[in-house]
């Protein structure tokens, strides 16, 4: 279809380049190492922020899921912040952390934090109470062993769902953050391409974002299959 549009409408090259030209640009950018370096920047930012979010949100989610009192206190705060798009944090992130890595990592942290937190809470909360009783009867008489042997594995599938979803939102948000303020990354590649009227750069960036997104999701699905006891 792309071919057809280019052949029939003959748009200016800066609006829609032909697939052939885009492929050539792709090869060029790969060969020069530029594409790899932009992609690596984006991936590393997401990975860093997402891991940070997981380290905070997973323990907090378990605590909120298992201790009703804590959940009652924190839930209104979570509900207030949750609907705010991570992109709305970009201005504050720039003010607080500058346009360097800190700001972008902060934005992605916000974006990935809530899906992980909410899924972990749900997973920890919805454990069949009879499994808890069975665990206690079968020798998990202290909270630590009950957590390790019953609560953790029972909630695991839902936690992984949260990690997967949040990686997706993080991946979407990093591009937006890089569009606004960055000197590197796939988002920068796109916005720079627009500024210098190189729509082939824009398209290469977009395709790379899509392909990497699918790739990460595949990795998560594979991890999910290893840990998910809920069945096919």
């Amino acid at each position: 279809m792309w071919w057809a549009v280019v052949l029939i409408a003959k748009p200016h090259m800066s609006l829609l380049p032909s697939p052939l030209l885009t492929a050539q640009t792709f090869v060029q950018l790969v060969a020069s190492g530029e594409l790899l370096s932009h992609a690596a920047y984006s991936v590393c930012r997401v990975l860093a922020a997402w891991s940070l979010a997981a380290v905070v949100a997973v323990p907090l989610g378990f605590a909120m899921g298992r201790w009703q009192r804590l959940e009652r206190v924190l839930d209104p705060v979570v509900e207030l912040f949750r609907p705010i798009s991570p992109l709305a944090w970009i201005p504050l992130a720039i003010l607080w952390f500058g346009i360097d890595e800190g700001g972008k990592i902060f934005v992605i942290f916000i974006g990935t934090f809530f899906p992980i937190l909410l899924n972990t809470i749900a997973g920890a909360k919805n454990i069949d109470p009879v499994l808890i009783r069975a665990g206690r009867i079968l020798g998990c008489t202290d909270d630590a062993s009950l957590f390790r042997k019953v609560v953790l594995p029972a909630a695991m599938p839902q936690v992984i769902v949260g990690l997967r979803i949040s990686f997706g939102t993080g991946w979407a948000a990093i591009i937006a953050a890089e569009l606004v303020a960055a000197r590197s990354g796939l988002g920068y590649l796109i916005s720079n391409g627009m500024e210098v009227l190189r729509s082939d750069f824009v398209l290469v960036g977009m395709v790379t974002i899509g392909v990497l997104g699918v790739l990460f999701d595949a990795i998560f699905r594979w991890v999910d299959r290893c840990y998910n006891w809920m069945g096919e």
């Binding site: 499994l131 009783r133 665990g135 009867i137 020798g139």
Partner: peptide, 18 residues
């Protein structure tokens, strides 16, 4: 609870991840 006292539940209570 004590492991010296066992219990069988109506809804089996098997751990689905094992």
């Amino acid at each position: 609870p004590d492991i010296d006292r066992g219990m069988v539940f109506q809804d089996y209570a098997l751990f689905p991840w094992l």
